[in-house]
Amino acid sequence: MFLVPDIVVRFYHRMASPPHFYSFTKKIMPWLVVIFVLLTGAGLYGGLYLAPADYQQGDSYRIIYIHVPSAWMSLFIYMVMAITGAIGLIWRIKLAEVISISSAPIGASFTFIALVTGSLWGKPMWGTWWVWDARLTSELILLFLYLGVIGLYGAIDDKKIASKSVAILALVGVVNIPIIHYSVEWWNTLHQGPTVTKMDKPSIHVSMLIPLLLMALSFKFYYLIALIQRARVELLKRERNSQWVKTMLAEQQQ
């Protein structure tokens, strides 16, 4: 092997070992929480207080600071779930399977938040809670995909088989991701087009853009925190008969 990759390979092997993951994530958790709190505080202060009202939408647009980051997370987490699912499927890495299934409820939550806050934003601006346009419909399908993954995993007792089945379902559902992203360009939707991820220049003022990006980053850290919490429980349950869990239980008993 090359000189550098050997260290990298060893790092991945260590990270993929359940007991190491369990103790490592416990150590970094306080730092993740501190970064999350700072980002959220700055993002909300900038978004709800410092940023001016929109010249067309007034203060209702402030829903953007949770709506757009949630929608971004709903897509991002789905990709993490599908990719780690594929890694688990191909290389049978237990930690990848655990990260994949632990992502599902968090992704479903962000999809739910994106849909509900979108509805609460649509009512005063569009005059309706819901329309069956391409963006809204494909995002609703994403929620059903997440719920399908959670339901399927719960329905199969053998968690090895459950992980494989769920990974295949998640991979098939990936086709929905570009549809959601490009829906506002491919179809004539009531949902507005992109304002931030435009190639030329974002059509949003910098005083509104900075809090939006802070909230997007804050949600990334939230995902890490919530993911670690779920993954640790899932690992414990799956590894309940392994030596490292037994040792930990023995220590707890004293």
Binding site: A53, G58, D59, S60, R62, I63, I66, H67, S70, P105, I106, S109, F112, I113, V116, T117, L120, W121, K123, P124, Y222, A226, Q229, R230
Partner: peptide, 21 residues
């Protein structure tokens, strides 16, 4: 600016879901 119900319901629901997770 008159949109308090929509804005705060959005933020409140988000808080509940994120805390639950």
């Amino acid at each position: 600016g008159g949109y308090g119900f929509y804005v705060w319901t959005s933020y409140g629901l988000t808080l509940i879901v994120l805390v639950a997770n």
